[in-house]
Design a protein around this nucleic acid. Structure first.
Lengths: 352, 352
DNA sequence: CTGAAAGCGCTTACAG
DNA sequence: CTGAAAGCGCTTACAG
């Protein structure tokens, strides 16, 4: 069933049907308009967007390329992007790369073939440069999330500042031995968080000790095992800053398994503020990333690009340190009872 | 840039270009083939899928309509679906209804206009019947996840059996006052879990007490407040079965806030087995739903429908009760020390 | 206010 | 082995 069937049924030409359907302001006799609408309703006609797109060179489709939807940050981002897209009549094609370079290229190919109007490239861990040429060659708008590449616009959060804030928060509580568990170090966001951690230490005059830095992989398990090793070393840290919440949850589990209390024996801070963070006991201190807003903003940027408007190269969206119960003053500052529990306690005090 | 440009550059007709690109087995002189491929490469040509789809009446696109991607079950499902889809050359359009009826109709309209080859309708809470007629009218395959509707195929998990298994697991540990926190009761999956809970009670000869049943909304907060009310009632339950993990996490938080130990004072079981479940302390006993498999299977079903193969109306995928540390025998069975903690303790023993 | 016609970029019988 | 031509279902100047 197509526009010709509708035209026949309504006794008009396909031009008129098209006008009634697409151009509300076009002058069509009221009676004709109603006849067309009636035919559309009776036939259950839905215009073929493939034909429309072919002609107009617009598919009303956005490609969303993300590394890993299992990371709870991305569903939020996808939600914000999709809600905004759908509000403006765009559909979102969902592409999950699993951080594999060949999948990135594959998805860009597919999206280009489908003539997506825009492509959102989110997350780190994959090198985007191999797809720059095709992206530049085609008439497609690109927005990058989480990193910045010169030919394209980007939406970012300030990982350096956020991690620095976490670190100074812990320093203000009295911590001097603050450990850091990174995510995969090939991610720029992770490099930035590490840099922010170090910058925070420096700002507070705390000497850098790389034995307190571990590389994780953003999974809880890696936070768990990194914490196990950190908490059994001597002197042990009084605070652990994990660069995402899932690893922080692993840290809390490791502390519990070692019989250590959070935050009395060990303060823990995460990053992301996933839902679970506020429902753990003690509730997790963490950095809230506005995932929904990031997605929504990326789509709004896209719409401005479609409209040919000027946009700033980088948009920084604010993070928010949410202080809950998993971070508190280290036990040492409260008295000597720490000695009973903590082998590294005395040594720890030397650092004060 | 289009197929004509490629043809010109290679000095052949567009027919030949098309054949080289799409029909590997079509007899084309080796030298011609190479000239075409060379031109494609040099121009960075990507065939227009809109034109292809218009002609072939195939868009190589699947619509995924889900209620709420923030529910951690759906990203897994989306991942399984998308991975399988992309493996077979299909793209996935992501549609999040937020359980709003009008959005469901909107998305079905959009997907029909985009001439999606298939539509996957997942989750409960929204009545699907209003979109049946358009779905039936169009040449589109439909797979339903989580419910069964006669005109369509479905992939389901057995919520009744899974909830019964949880309940008998708790009964076997010695629990008699087993509370249940449901999700939104308009969801068939929730109704099924409630039915399974009751069937488990009956199977173990435990009298039904509806004061032990609360309606939640799948958010942690509702589990938290339901647990607060359950745990402050008298006699209080010795076990709480929450019908998803997020609510179970709220239950654990409420128990902690009341100074109750899990599982000694109160056993807690969830449903879903989200990643967090295994990283809580105590780790959460819960029902694992194979989200990835459900998505992957739905896509495989779709492919079989495209191929015109016979498929069974309903496919049941297995759940798995994962017993961890949050469920254990009730304290009453271990001695009188319960009296110190539990106001309802003595009364509780009467029930034994 | 309405319609005939061109054309978007492909695939595929059909002819050679 | 190769090409000319029809046609998928639309939108929109152009003509009236």
């Amino acid at each position: 069933m197509n526009i010709t069937d509708v035209a026949k049924k309504a006794g008009v030409s396909i031009s008129t049907v098209s006008r009634v359907l697409n151009n509300a302001s076009y002058p069509v006799k009221q009676e004709t308009r109603e006849r067309v609408l009636e035919a559309v309703r009776e036939l259950g006609f839905r215009p073929n967007d493939l034909a429309r797109g072919l002609l107009l060179k617009k598919s009303r489709t956005i490609g969303l390329v993300i590394p890993d939807i299992s990371n709870p940050y991305y569903p939020e981002l996808a939600l914000g992007l999709e809600a905004t897209a759908s509000e403006y009549g765009y559909s979102v094609i969902f592409c999950n790369t699993g951080r594999q370079a060949e999948k990135l290229e594959h998805y860009v190919d597919v999206l280009l073939q489908k003539r997506a109007d825009g492509i959102v490239l989110a997350g780190g861990g994959t090198d985007f440069t191999p797809v720059f040429q095709p992206l530049l060659d085609f008439d497609v708008e690109v927005v990058v999330i989480g990193r910045h590449y010169l030919p394209f616009l980007s939406v970012q959060i300030d990982n350096v500042a956020a991690a620095r804030e976490v670190t100074t928060h812990l320093a203000e509580l009295g911590h001097r031995r603050i450990a850091f568990i990174s995510g995969p170090l090939n991610l720029t966001s992770v490099q930035d968080r590490l840099a922010g951690y170090r910058s925070g230490l420096e700002e507070r005059g705390i000497g850098r000790d790389d034995r307190l830095v571990r590389e994780g992989d953003f999974q809880s398990e890696s936070g768990y095992s990194a914490a196990l090793s950190l908490l059994q070393a001597e002197p042990r840290p009084t605070a652990i800053f994990a660069s995402n919440d899932r690893m922080a949850i692993g840290v809390v589990a490791a502390a519990a398994d070692l019989g250590l209390k959070v935050p009395d024996d060990i303060s823990v801070v995460g990053f992301d503020d996933i839902i679970m963070a506020s429902y753990m006991r003690p509730a997790l201190t963490t950095v809230a990333i506005p995932g929904y807003e990031v997605g929504a903003y990326a789509m709004r940027l896209m719409l401005r690009l479609f409209a040919g408007e000027e946009c700033s190269q980088i948009t920084w969206l604010p993070t928010n340190l949410v202080v809950r119960d998993s971070s508190g003053p280290p036990r040492e500052t409260e008295g000597f009872d720490v000695m009973k529990l903590e082998r590294g306690g005395a040594e720890g005090r030397v650092l004060e």
